[in-house]
Simulated scan of single mutants.
Amino acid sequence: MDYGKNFSNKRSNNESSADRKRLLMSRQIVMENEKEDINKMADAFINNFRKQLKIERANSLRRFHDMVNRGAE
């Protein structure tokens, strides 16, 4: 009877070890997906920031030319 108990404990340890491995793998996959999402969000933020800078530069240049043209008249 002790053999049966030991066998069942070993079996449950093996199962729990396999469960742990599956859980770790699923966590790793989730972490990779989160990293991809974070990278996409960062890229979108950077692209939006660059667009805003270009718009601000264009507006600033336009205001500068308007100011120079008013003084030249």
Score class of each variant (00 low, 15 high):
residue 58 A to P: 00
residue 28 Q to H: 09
residue 32 E to C: 08
residue 49 F to P: 00
residue 27 R to Y: 14
residue 71 G to Q: 14
residue 54 K to M: 08
residue 72 A to L: 15
residue 51 K to P: 02
residue 4 G to A: 11
residue 47 N to R: 12
residue 28 Q to Y: 09
residue 34 E to D: 14
residue 7 F to R: 12
residue 72 A to Y: 12
residue 3 Y to A: 12
residue 46 I to G: 02
residue 57 R to G: 02
residue 53 L to I: 03
residue 28 Q to R: 04
residue 64 F to A: 14
residue 7 F to K: 14
residue 41 M to W: 06
residue 33 N to G: 04
residue 17 S to I: 03
residue 60 S to A: 02
residue 27 R to V: 06
residue 44 A to Y: 07
residue 63 R to G: 04
residue 68 V to F: 02
residue 58 A to R: 08
residue 2 D to Y: 11
residue 72 A to V: 14
residue 10 K to P: 00
residue 60 S to V: 00
residue 28 Q to D: 10
residue 73 E to D: 14
residue 22 R to S: 10
residue 11 R to G: 02
residue 5 K to Q: 07
residue 17 S to G: 11
residue 25 M to D: 13
residue 66 D to P: 01
residue 21 K to H: 01
residue 50 R to W: 02
residue 29 I to N: 05
residue 17 S to N: 10
residue 67 M to P: 01
residue 40 K to P: 01
residue 59 N to K: 06
residue 52 Q to A: 09
residue 1 M to I: 07
residue 34 E to A: 05
residue 38 I to Y: 07
residue 58 A to E: 11
residue 59 N to Y: 08
residue 27 R to N: 02
residue 62 R to F: 07
residue 10 K to C: 09
residue 37 D to P: 00
residue 16 S to F: 14
residue 58 A to N: 02
residue 47 N to H: 09
residue 43 D to L: 11
residue 2 D to N: 12
residue 7 F to N: 10
residue 35 K to T: 06
residue 43 D to W: 13
residue 14 N to I: 06
residue 7 F to M: 11
residue 36 E to Y: 04
residue 4 G to C: 08
residue 10 K to L: 13
residue 52 Q to C: 06
residue 60 S to G: 05
residue 30 V to G: 13
residue 45 F to G: 00
residue 3 Y to L: 12
residue 11 R to I: 00
residue 67 M to E: 15
residue 34 E to K: 13
residue 71 G to N: 03
residue 26 S to G: 04
residue 45 F to Y: 14
residue 17 S to E: 10
residue 1 M to W: 10
residue 52 Q to Y: 08
residue 55 I to S: 03
residue 17 S to Q: 04
residue 13 N to R: 07
residue 31 M to E: 08
residue 1 M to R: 06
residue 19 D to E: 11
residue 18 A to D: 11
residue 1 M to Q: 08
residue 63 R to K: 15
residue 18 A to T: 02
residue 31 M to H: 08
residue 68 V to N: 03
residue 39 N to I: 02
residue 13 N to W: 05
residue 16 S to I: 03
residue 12 S to M: 09
residue 23 L to F: 15
residue 22 R to F: 05
residue 29 I to H: 04
residue 54 K to F: 07
residue 10 K to I: 10
residue 51 K to H: 10
residue 6 N to C: 10
residue 39 N to M: 02
residue 24 L to G: 09
residue 53 L to K: 09
residue 14 N to W: 09
residue 33 N to W: 05
residue 43 D to A: 07
residue 12 S to N: 04
residue 9 N to Y: 06
residue 67 M to H: 11
residue 18 A to W: 05
residue 4 G to N: 13
residue 69 N to C: 04
residue 5 K to W: 01
residue 70 R to G: 09
residue 67 M to K: 14
residue 2 D to S: 15
residue 58 A to G: 02
residue 4 G to R: 08
residue 52 Q to E: 06
residue 18 A to N: 07
residue 11 R to K: 10
residue 57 R to M: 14
residue 39 N to L: 04
residue 55 I to P: 00
residue 12 S to Y: 04
residue 5 K to V: 07
residue 60 S to K: 01
residue 60 S to N: 08
residue 47 N to Y: 06
residue 71 G to S: 12
residue 44 A to C: 03
residue 43 D to V: 10
residue 13 N to M: 07
residue 55 I to D: 04
residue 11 R to D: 00
residue 38 I to E: 06
residue 3 Y to G: 00
residue 17 S to Y: 05
residue 35 K to A: 13
residue 54 K to A: 11
residue 17 S to P: 00
residue 30 V to H: 03
residue 52 Q to T: 03
residue 1 M to H: 12
residue 53 L to D: 09
residue 19 D to R: 11
